[in-house]
């Protein structure tokens, strides 16, 4: 008889997640509450693992998630994006939180959140720093204005604290706002960074699908659908100093401004987009698959709807560019 494998610290959470996730798919918000619960539990386990080795945390800290988790828009499967900030800058805390960061990334991987290709994880020293170091890093990113540093800033802007001190990153985000106050043109640099939208509707108003690969015939929902909305709305949120991280609540707040009234339609489109992706879950559970939509399987109504959403995403991008340019003209 085979010996049963010894239980790892994450096995219980893993099986709980697997058995319950199916019951939380009626809405994107319900699914994300579920993800939050799982990740908070995961954090507690990781912390107690590290406590056993290194004792209690040497100082206050915040653990935050970014990317789709930060925006409260995770699909059923999403890769991990997270970071750590801690108060006291010394060797002891550095060592402690590096260890914790590694443990969290490993734990998340164990329970079903794939590693992030871009290395946006607490296990990466770039995303695990003391408050002081974070301030310096963000200043450096702001000054550098390289494609990569701007990317990092945009990623960081979606950060949402999931464990530890709730306001641990608020001041860090304010650095971006202060910089833009001094140098409004920086907003346009941010816009340029995410301006490219993968084309999804052709000259004959046909939906452009992948021509090769295992998703041939599918439309790339992530790049052509989600990204233009997420990026444009994040930018407007930065401009208006809105601290919410989810695209929908950002939109909600923006619609409160009289000049953004026309974004109402955008909200509807983005909700539809989230729902299209949610329906994809029933078809497949592979990470890549949820980002592609098989247009052949859609009825005519859905197909037209998705086409309109894709077109509106591009329009929204253009609109955002105009808003920023107009702002810059008024400044001068």
């Amino acid at each position: 008889m085979n010996e049963p494998e010894p239980m790892g610290p994450y096995d219980t959470l893993k099986s709980w997640r697997e058995s319950h996730i199916g019951n939380h798919q009626t809405s994107i918000s319900e699914l994300n509450h579920f993800h939050d619960t799982v990740m908070q539990n995961l954090f507690d386990i990781s912390l107690s693992e590290v406590k056993e080795k290194l004792g209690p945390p040497p100082c206050r800290f915040s653990w935050f998630v970014m990317g789709s988790a930060g925006r409260f828009e995770q699909a059923i499967i999403s890769d991990q994006d997270h970071g750590l900030v801690y108060h006291v800058s010394n060797e002891k805390s550095r060592e402690y939180f590096r260890e914790l960061g590694k443990e969290i990334s490993f734990g998340l991987y164990e329970i079903g959140y794939p590693y992030c290709d871009g290395g946006v994880m607490s296990s990466n020293p770039l995303w695990c720093k003391s408050n002081e170091e974070w301030e310096m890093q963000i200043d450096k990113w702001l000054e550098e204005e390289s494609f990569e540093s701007i990317r990092f800033l945009l990623i960081f802007y979606d950060a949402r604290v999931l464990a530890g001190e709730e306001h641990g990153i608020t001041r860090l985000k304010q650095q971006l706002h202060h910089h833009i106050e001094k140098r409004p043109y920086f907003l346009y640099r941010l816009f340029e960074n995410t301006r490219h939208v993968k084309k999804a509707v052709g000259v004959f108003r046909q939906i452009l699908t992948e021509s090769h690969g295992s998703h041939a015939g599918y439309v790339d929902l992530k790049h052509s659908g989600f990204f233009p909305y997420i990026n444009a709305i994040r930018l407007l949120a930065i401009k208006e100093n809105i601290s919410d991280t989810s695209t929908l609540s950002r939109l909600e707040k923006l619609c409160g401004f009289p000049e953004y009234k026309e974004l109402e339609g955008c909200k509807v489109d983005f909700e539809k987009l989230l729902n299209f992706r949610l329906q994809q879950h029933q078809v497949s559970e592979l990470y890549d698959d949820v980002h592609y939509l098989d247009v052949k399987k859609l009825d005519k109504k859905d197909r037209n709807e998705i086409k309109q959403i894709l077109l509106n995403g591009k329009k929204l991008q253009d609109y955002t560019g105009t808003v920023i340019k107009r702002m810059l003209e008024n400044e001068n």
């Binding site: 021509s211 090769h212 690969g213 295992s214 998703h215 041939a216 015939g217």
Partner: peptide, 9 residues
Amino acid sequence: FNKNGTANN
């Protein structure tokens, strides 16, 4: 070609 019949580049 993939198992699902799609072609790779």
